[in-house]
């Protein structure tokens, strides 16, 4: 590795800087290797010439860097460089005295999202089972349908779909709880970012978008499943989830957002974070 020797300690202006001296050996070595390659196509003489040039270039290169790398001194004439912003300065907002606030200033705790997701999941499941009773005289129909998304054990016939299957119940329950908790966590994260009518946005707008998206692609992704879905009821159950999850989440007590990264809060001293005798505000 090259060294760039300096005649003064770092951090000050130097009178002279030593830089690696220009050299023709690298380009000559490249010429030699290119001729070796070209000779493979054209003639052995070209390869031989290339090899000679390459060897000469290697020797020259070694002599350039051994026993000590060659340098060329360059004089430095100090020139003033002013580093200022070209933009005009504006008054800064400093909520709660924080020069740089991490927004939002308050968030819901993780538990709020979990609670909201689980509550929404119960509302959704009840509505779905109600749909099963009304449409198919069986609460198992929507459960089997959900389970069959990942566990295609049941034949797609009406009696089978309306019957009780323990494995489908387990799969559907696991799937439902997992999804509801994850979406609940998403609500817990997103709702503080939607200051105006969060329940309306989370409870109505999001389910509409999600249902519309799914409706547009499910016929391609899973046509069989698509045939068994009543989209009106599907939308209703999504809205039920969204409203209940949204209401539960917004009723939780918010906590202040951590304003400094973990390393700063933990008092880790690393280059850049210490010095100047600054105490962090």
């Amino acid at each position: 590795m090259t060294s760039h020797s300096q005649s003064a300690p770092r951090g000050s202006v130097h009178d002279q800087v030593n830089l690696p001296s220009p050299t023709g050996w690298p380009v000559l070595l490249a010429v030699g290797l290119a001729l070796i390659a070209g000779g493979v196509i054209s003639s052995g003489y070209v390869t031989f010439l290339g090899a000679l040039i390459a060897v000469a270039a290697c020797v020259g290169w070694f002599r350039d860097v051994l026993p000590q790398e060659r340098h060329v001194p360059v004089i430095v004439v100090p020139q003033e460089i002013v580093i200022v912003s070209s933009r005009r300065k504006v008054a800064r907002m400093a909520p709660r005295g924080l020069a740089r606030a991490r927004l939002p200033l308050e968030i819901y705790p993780i538990s709020a999202g979990i609670k909201g997701g689980l509550a929404g999941g119960v509302a959704m499941a009840l509505l779905a089972m109600f749909y099963g009773v009304v449409s198919h005289r069986s609460i198992w129909y929507p459960i089997n349908l959900l389970g069959a998304v990942v566990y295609a054990h049941v034949q797609v016939t009406a009696p089978e779909m309306e019957a009780f299957h323990i494995e489908l119940l387990l799969v559907a329950t696991a799937l439902h709880i997992t999804t509801c908790v994850l979406v609940g966590l998403l609500y817990g994260t997103l709702l503080p970012m939607l200051p105006r009518r969060p329940v309306l946005l989370g409870g109505l707008f999001a389910p509409l978008v999600w249902t519309g998206l799914l409706h547009s692609i499910l016929s391609i992704v899973d046509p069989v499943l698509n045939q068994h879905i009543d989209w009106l009821w599907f939308l209703a159950s999504q809205i039920a989830f969204g409203l209940v999850a949204g209401v539960v989440v917004v009723r939780q007590v918010r906590v202040p957002t951590w304003q400094y990264p973990f390393s700063v809060r933990a008092g880790v001293e690393s280059p850049g974070m210490m010095g100047d005798g600054d105490s962090r505000d």
Partner: peptide, 28 residues
């Protein structure tokens, strides 16, 4: 970092043509 400088190469024993400067350069 408020000050920087302009480079003035020291006089060299031989003058290089522009082409040779670029052919032989090792400046990144």
């Amino acid at each position: 970092m408020a000050a920087d400088s302009i480079a003035v190469p020291l006089p060299r024993t031989e003058s290089r043509s522009l082409l040779l400067d670029w052919l032989c350069t090792v400046d990144h």
